[in-house]
Design a protein around this nucleic acid. Structure first.
Length: 205
DNA sequence: TACCAGGAGAAAA
DNA sequence: TTTTCTCATGGT
């Protein structure tokens, strides 16, 4: 239904796998529009590579990340991630690592939690891992298809079990949830159970 | 002016 | 082990 309404999204917003990974870290608890300003600053300062992020002064890095909020925290997290990527041999080497092993490695990085790790796995490494974010919880909770308080891993396994291991499908599915939620966020629920979608009997898109 | 937005880690209970 | 607190900017 969402695909028919919005069309294919071909996500994630980013021109390279590394830019996608940087975006996944910077978007933590932050609106994407603010992340775009920070990524633009990195590009303007020719700093959108792991090596340059590791070599630049941390104060400068934090200053460039300022628009994305939590800039001091995110500067450290981005550095931690880049250090891991370089130590692991770079993107091509990491691409060869089996999905579950790679997920564990990502989760071992200070500053990379389940959602950020799964964003990176799905969108940068094209792995069949479903991303459970605030939009997913909100939408499916309103549809009464899940309990928003359920643990991250439980929800992820539920989606993966029901959809099958299909990275392109997960990519499109999550992108549509996000694009729909962003467009719906300006709408007020029509009732206490409103899901803000056309499946809600009281609403039409 | 107040609230919200694609988390995660540390500290406290 | 679980809950609470902290990090922070830009848009509405």
């Amino acid at each position: 239904m969402l695909h028919a309404h919005y069309g294919p999204q071909h996500w994630w917003p980013g021109n390279s796998p590394f830019e996608m990974m940087v975006g996944a870290i910077l978007t933590q608890n932050t609106a994407w529009t603010n992340v775009e300003y920070a990524i633009k600053n990195l590009k303007t300062n020719h700093c959108l590579t792991p090596q340059k992020i590791l070599n630049v002064d941390i104060a400068d890095l934090a200053m460039w990340l300022k628009p994305s909020g939590y800039f001091n925290v995110k500067a450290k997290r981005l550095r931690n991630f880049c250090q891991w990527l370089v130590n692991a041999g770079g993107f091509d080497a990491v691409s060869q690592v089996e999905t579950n092993t790679l997920r564990k490695q990502l989760l071992s990085i200070n500053g990379v939690g389940p959602e950020t790790a799964d964003d990176i796995l799905l969108y940068a490494f094209d792995r069949p891992v479903f991303v459970i974010d605030a939009y997913t919880r909100r939408l499916f909770s309103r549809l009464q298809l899940l309990d928003a308080n359920e643990g991250y891993e439980h929800l992820r396994h539920q989606f993966e079990k029901n959809l099958g291991a299909n990275a392109p499908l997960f990519n499109e599915y999550h992108a549509l949830i996000v694009i729909h939620s962003k467009q719906s966020c300006t709408k007020k629920p029509c009732c206490s159970n409103c899901c803000l979608t056309s499946v809600c009997p009281s609403r039409s898109l």
